[in-house]
Amino acid sequence: MVKKEVVKRDIILIACVLIAALAALLIINLTKQSGTVAVIYTNNEEYARMPLDVDAEIVIYSDGKEANTLVVQNGKAYISSASCPDKICVNTGSISNENEMIVCLPNKVIVVIEKEN
């Protein structure tokens, strides 16, 4: 009889621990900040992080020279002007989905959309 009692209490205890763990996981996941950013890389190094929810304009310098201008507007990023001859980066248009990219090969500039934790 005593033994059964112990088992019952232990089960309740286990259940409580499990519920607490679940609740903790939930809280952690719900409070996670998940902003979307346009991350600029020049020469394979991170150059700047531009949150997509803030309209902004940034001039990107690559190898000390004015290379590209990135505009963040209405949750999207695009390159508005560039010093490269081919303008492929400008013609790529705007990006906003995770892992989408704008590449400027001549200036060695990559802009990629990343999710921030």
């Binding site: 621990v17 763990a21 996981l25 394979n44 590449v103 090969l105 060695k108």
Partner: peptide, 26 residues
């Protein structure tokens, strides 16, 4: 049980890294 919970949170995640230069491309 606790270890199992923590373990779940540690599953490998997918990452991406990009480079420019090799073979003059991305």
């Amino acid at each position: 049980c606790l270890i199992a919970f923590v373990g779940c949170g540690k599953t490998d995640l997918q990452y991406q890294k990009q480079y420019i230069d090799a073979f003059d491309t991305v």
